[in-house]
Amino acid sequence: MKERMRNAGGFPLVATGALGILSAWVSYLGVRDYWDSSTPNVPEIVATNVLLPYEEVHIPDGPNRVVFQTSCVICHSPRLIFGQPTISEAKWLEVVNKMVATYGAPIEPEDERKIVAYLVSVQADRGDR
């Protein structure tokens, strides 16, 4: 009698315990990705699409400004040019030649000289740096 009572009380206890462990395991399955990762779970990036800011760069007045604008700015920003150190006319000619010979810039030889004149003039206006 005493034994039967013990059995009757024991079964629900074991069943409840087992059910508890089972439900803990099931809920762990649901959250383990978060549980196991030490870093916060962020959505994975599947694509990128950036819009670049556009900052107008002032193109100073000078001889042949239009030739400069139509020849040099197709491939890169004028900012790169105006950021260059003060260099000689011969060195500017070398730079412009390189744009034509190495990078295939569509510039007529006569316009190369005009562009160099513009660069030298703009550089003289701003002073040495």
Binding site: V50, L51, E55, V57, S77, G83
Partner: peptide, 21 residues
């Protein structure tokens, strides 16, 4: 000095903007 905020970046000194440096 010219500084610009590009996408995903703090304000940085711009060496060139097309293409960005």
């Amino acid at each position: 000095e010219p500084t610009v905020r590009f996408p995903g970046k703090v304000e940085m000194r711009v060496i060139n903007d097309r293409p960005p440096c």
